[in-house]
Design a protein around this nucleic acid. Structure first.
Length: 768
DNA sequence: AGCACGCCGACT
DNA sequence: GTCGGCGTGCTC
């Protein structure tokens, strides 16, 4: 059916109010009312030959909203005929903001899915997905270009003009290309007055063009190209599995479970080469922390045109990359979480490296998980998705096992490249060997001493930054907490201050107990700063580098530190989890885990999984060269299944022990979880609000006969943050749709009172 | 989210 | 009588 016939359709005779069909745009708003609104498209905005003011899906438009017709900006998400009646006519759009569509039809469908899945208004999802630099066309500016019309140029000499104006016209006619107002004034040596006079007379014509303000930015650094590496049998098999999906041209999810050092990267590089040879693009998501020049360099060695997207880019740079990608000028997009929205015109493959990392979950609205969004996107676009990890998330793992609702194909790479052995792991029971009062037990000290004498390098992991992790008074039991948060203050010796790691509140370190004035106040607990001091004291003359959020503040400091370690200028690298992932230094012969159980007692059902991942990942940093490597794991809980499994590099053992426990409690991956977090200055108000939500939710669940279990409301594990109280309510269900239905019926309609903010987190990764 | 509409108290 | 308080509900 042609569009014309829709317009010609007669309104039904029984319709009292004569309806007619008008061309309308459906608009969603980035803030304000969450619904969809239809507006009539004026004829002036329906002409594709006028691209600057053409309304199409994916562009932003100006529209009048409400009885006062206050002007708002929204995203056009659809265009089509809509009924309009004289009693309730559609209001017309006021204008078009974007000269091109910012969101492709497939990306509109994806964001629509996110809006439903995460209970976030569609407009807010779009606002969170289109970078602000793209919206504002950062790095470009409207420039008025002046030229002499050909008709005028022909009779230039016959014109009677004041002297300045004659000069201006002469100069512009002589110019080979159009000039801006400023350029022309400069060339003639006059003000803009005579130029404007000529424009008014029609002797100079002008047009507006959008130009880059800075010309071309520095192009990609040329890197020497490297050929594909030879694959071992495990790698070849895995590549075949991926290529079979690529060649079939269908969606399939492949979980690549390869131990640390098994060469997963080379496999997906070669898979991408195939995809690129078809003229399609690939997206590779990596955790932000590993988006280093080294990682990016590996892609530059293999592909001519890559785009990098990460959160520390300027608006101008992000806009430029976005345009390159959208224009099809890029073969591979490498980026953090948000690169899953890269506007590739012909997507052929998505890879998520270190799939288990929690940084793929965004912790502000829209609270999406890049893995789940990638799954949805690749399914919709009919292309394969590769998830790669040495320690897959249990969510991904379960999907690779029989009986799961979602089926991933599993490709295992159980051996390291070159048949290098996995490093031997020794557990040090701190209940027995922790007598030395410091961070380094005797067995670890001896191993470090040995490694240094053998000319090896050492990595020490301690997942707490600062010097002392708590300040406590033995006399009265007082523990120093942040004034604004329910969190212990950490002493930082470098700044000589106690610091809150959640809100960055700082104050002077107390010398007496603030509560009972006892001078015996104690600074306890081990942070990376104290560990560094201990290493320096016990290994005099050995170069040590500490890597944590405090030493890595400046851009580039990450690279500097790692380069120094790579070149052997640093013998001991110590730090938080940022040193646990992805590093590949063959000379590291010892890894020490100072406290393997530090994350084990967090109030989080994933504590064991996190611990297993962290210990396994950091253990994988050694034994990557011919010299082998060993790992020392210090713990107060040496019999914990997660630590035992990590010690044996045995992922499947960990999974087979942890999954039944999750199943018994209905936790992910066997059930879907949602969390309502409410915060506000008044605790009673919070409690009243969340109790009411719980009540309406309970009723909604009952009426629907749904299997949804409510836990709480209760104070959140961090009861106070930045001066606000926090309470939460958890929901568990075998069905995500049941959870969403309950939230739509029992949470959305309850408006929080003034001073209370309420958010929903679907599939939360963080329980604090 | 913002803004018009509504229905009750102290003022010219 | 009416100016304005902010509770309520709608926005194509």
């Amino acid at each position: 059916m042609s569009q014309r016939s829709l317009f010609d359709a007669e309104p039904p005779a029984w319709e009292i109010d004569a309806q007619s069909m008008v061309l309308a745009a459906t608009v969603v708003l980035p803030s304000g009312p969450p619904g969809e609104f239809d507006y009539a498209i004026p004829d002036t905005m329906a002409d594709p030959r006028k691209p600057d003011v053409y309304v199409e899906p994916g562009r932003r438009v100006r529209a009048p909203l409400g009885r006062g017709n206050r002007p708002v900006v929204g995203y056009c998400v659809a265009v089509g005929p809509k009924p309009s009646s004289p009693s309730r006519p559609l209001k017309p759009l006021r204008g078009v903001l974007d000269p091109v569509s910012l969101v492709s039809p497939s990306m509109l469908r994806l964001t629509r899915w996110m809006a439903d899945h995460y209970l976030t208004p569609w407009g807010q999802v779009l606002e969170g997905v289109v970078p602000s630099g793209v919206r504002g066309r950062a790095g470009t500016r409207d420039v008025t270009l002046l030229s002499v019309p050909t008709k005028v140029a022909a009779r230039l000499t016959g014109l009677e003009l004041p002297p300045k104006q004659a000069d201006v016209l002469q100069a512009l006619a002589a110019s080979s290309k159009p000039l801006s107002l400023k350029q022309l004034a400069m060339r003639v040596g006059c003000t803009t007055a005579p130029i404007n006079a000529l424009r008014k007379r029609g002797l100079i014509e002008s047009r507006v063009e959008r130009l880059a303000t800075d010309g071309l930015l520095a192009e990609d650094v040329a890197v020497e190209r490297q050929p594909a590496k030879r694959l071992n049998p495990d790698q070849a098999r895995t590549l075949d599995t991926i290529l079979a999906a690529v060649d079939a041209g269908e969606h399939e999810t492949i979980l690549v479970h390869g131990v640390t050092g098994s060469g997963k990267t080379e496999v997906y590089l070669q898979a991408i080469e195939r995809v690129v040879s078809f003229g399609r693009q690939a997206i590779v998501l990596v955790p932000e922390i590993s988006l280093t020049p080294q990682t990016v360099g590996r892609f530059r060695e293999r592909f001519d045109r890559i785009a990098v997207l990460h959160s520390h880019q300027s608006d101008v740079e992000r806009h430029r990359q976005w345009r390159r990608i959208a224009a099809g000028d890029v073969e591979v997009v490498v980026g953090a979480r948000s690169a899953v929205f890269a506007p590739t015109p012909h997507l052929g493959l998505v890879v998520i490296d270190e799939e288990h990392e929690t940084t793929f979950k965004q912790d502000t609205a829209p609270r999406y998980h890049a893995r789940d969004v990638a799954l949805e996107r690749t399914r919709a676009e009919g292309v394969p998705l590769v998830l790669a990890s040495a320690t897959p998330s249990l969510e991904a793992w379960r999907c690779s096992q029989p009986g799961a609702p979602e089926r991933f194909r599993l490709a295992s790479m159980p051996r390291r490249i070159g048949d290098l052995p996995m490093p031997a792991v020794r557990v040090v029971d701190l209940r027995v060997d922790g007598e030395s009062r410091g961070a380094i037990s005797r067995p670890l000290y001896q191993a470090m001493d040995q490694a240094l004498r053998d000319d090896g390098q050492i990595i020490l992991l301690l997942n707490r930054r600062g010097y002392s992790t708590h300040v406590q008074c033995p006399a009265c039991g007082y523990a120093l907490k942040c004034d604004h948060c329910d969190v212990a203050m950490t002493f930082h010796r470098q700044d000589n201050a106690v610091v809150c790691h959640w809100c960055d509140y700082r104050s002077a370190p107390p010398t007496v107990c603030p509560d009972c004035r006892s001078p015996r106040i104690r600074y306890g607990g081990m942070g990376t700063q104290k560990l560094e001091a201990e290493v320096n004291a016990r290994f005099r003359g050995v170069s040590v580098t500490r890597m944590d959020a405090d030493t890595m503040r400046r851009p580039g400091s990450h690279e500097t530190a790692l380069d120094a370690f790579r070149h052997g200028e640093t013998r001991i690298l110590l730090g938080t989890q940022m040193i646990a992932k992805g590093l590949d230094f063959p000379n590291v012969t010892l890894v020490g885990v100072i406290s393997a159980d530090s994350a084990l007692n967090l109030p989080d059902f994933r504590a064991a999984e996190r611990t297993f991942q962290l210990v396994t990942q950091v253990a994988g940093r050694t034994g990557r060269g011919e010299r082998g490597g060993r790992v020392i794991v210090q713990t107060f809980d040496p019999d914990h299944p997660a630590i035992l499994a990590a010690v044996r590099h045995d992922y499947e053992r960990f999974a087979s022990e942890e999954l039944p426990a999750r199943r018994a409690l209905g936790y992910p991956p066997f059930g879907v979880m949602a969390r309502i977090i409410a915060r506000g200055a008044s605790e009673p108000l919070l409690t009243a609000y969340l109790d009411q939500v719980a009540e309406t939710l309970k009723r909604a669940v009952q009426e629907a006969g749904a299997k949804v279990r409510l836990v709480g409301p209760a104070p959140a594990p961090i009861t106070r943050l930045r001066g606000e109280f926090r309470r939460h309510l958890q929901m568990h269900s075998p069905s995500g749709d049941a959870v969403r239905a309950a939230l739509r019926a029992g949470w959305l309609p309850i408006k929080p009172p003034e001073g209370v903010r309420s958010v929903v987190d679907i599939d939360p990764t963080d329980m604090l």
